[in-house]
Amino acid sequence: MIGRHGLERRLHERGGEREVRFLYRDRRPRIPVWRDGRLQVVRWGNGRRQSRFLPATGWTWQATVEQGYWRNIGAVRVEIPATLGCDRGVWFRIRQGIRGILVPDERGIAVAYMVCVPSTHYYQVMTRSPRMPLLIDEHI
């Protein structure tokens, strides 16, 4: 998997354990998703504007998902497996993963967005970010 997706350059070590870092600020942002029982590494968002019609971000509000915006353009819900998150330089523990959506762009390439909610008070103080990822079965 690491060879197939060229993940070597994303490999890091922390406390003697290897980890693969998927960062949005990467020059080719990628993110792993579980889809139909398979782990895939896909393009993360549209920050590089490869698509002319997808939003030029890497995340979307949960409210937008619930309003049906994404369903109308063929998106499906996916889970993004993660053990750690990094927001504005702060690493925090994630027990299961993050909710996401996967949507095809105009060329049929799968693009993932992370689902976000307004930050809890704790998260806002910790990261100074007004939004936080929607974690799976976890509240921080």
Partner: peptide
């Protein structure tokens, strides 16, 4: 074995 900090005071 990893560097860990527990946060108080609301983070």
């Amino acid at each position: 074995d990893k560097p860990v900090g527990v946060l108080g005071n609301q983070g």
